[in-house]
Simulated assay, not measured.
Amino acid sequence: MNRNKYNLRSMIVCSMFAAVTAVLAQIEIPLPLVPISGQTLAVGLTSTIIGSRLGAIAMMCYAAIGAVGAPVFAGFSGGLHVLLGPTGGYIFGFIIAAYVIGYILEKSSYTVKMAMLANTIGMVIILLCGTLQLKFVLDLSWSVALVSGVYPFIVVGLIKAFLASWIGIVVRKRLDQANVLLTQHRV
């Protein structure tokens, strides 16, 4: 495939996964400070399916689209104030987590077991980034930040990590069988 065609396909794939993230962001369970949403499931799916580089780019696109005001974040919110506000750290964490999840899979194997490990590490990264910003923006104590930004998300985060791993590996294998994966790392 020539370089221009590959670049166009990469942009389309990243845009599609940014859109999937925007859609899953609207599935939410409201909590006092930080809602539970489908965004982290989208991060895991994205990086499990398309890898570290494209996964991180897709999450950067998602963050950029939201930063300019498109209502793609949880609760149909958008704007730079969301990224700089109490929950913005989670969105920045999506970029790092997407890269790390994809990188772990690229350096090991595309199995549900390895994807579960990678997605669990990604969940921890997202929770740490989110809790750090939550703590400092709202001037919370560490204990309150952890109670608000980590503890309510552990069980549901593990469930989403499993779903992202299982669904992501199945989809990735099907895309590999159809010979349409953009990455050079085969299943």
Rank of each mutant, 00 (worst) to 15 (best):
C129N: 05
I12N: 09
A115M: 10
G38T: 00
L24Y: 00
T120V: 14
N179Y: 09
F153E: 03
A56N: 08
V112G: 10
L41P: 00
L24D: 01
V137S: 02
V82S: 00
A25C: 07
C61H: 08
Q177F: 14
S165F: 05
A19R: 08
S10C: 08
L182F: 10
L127F: 03
A118I: 03
A145R: 10
A161M: 13
I121Q: 07
L163Q: 05
L24S: 04
L163S: 07
Y90F: 13
G75W: 07
L134H: 06
F92G: 05
Q133H: 09
L146M: 14
S10H: 02
A22T: 06
V43A: 06
C14R: 01
Y62A: 00
W142L: 14
V170T: 13
F153V: 02
N179H: 14
M116G: 06
N179D: 15
S143M: 15
E106C: 09
A161Y: 06
V147W: 13
R3I: 14
A161W: 10
I95K: 00
C61I: 14
I12L: 15
I169H: 02
E106D: 11
A22K: 00
V13W: 09
I101V: 15
A19I: 12
G93V: 04
I159L: 12
H81Q: 13
A19Q: 03
Q26E: 09
Y99S: 04
D176S: 12
K173I: 07
P152E: 12
A64G: 12
W142V: 14
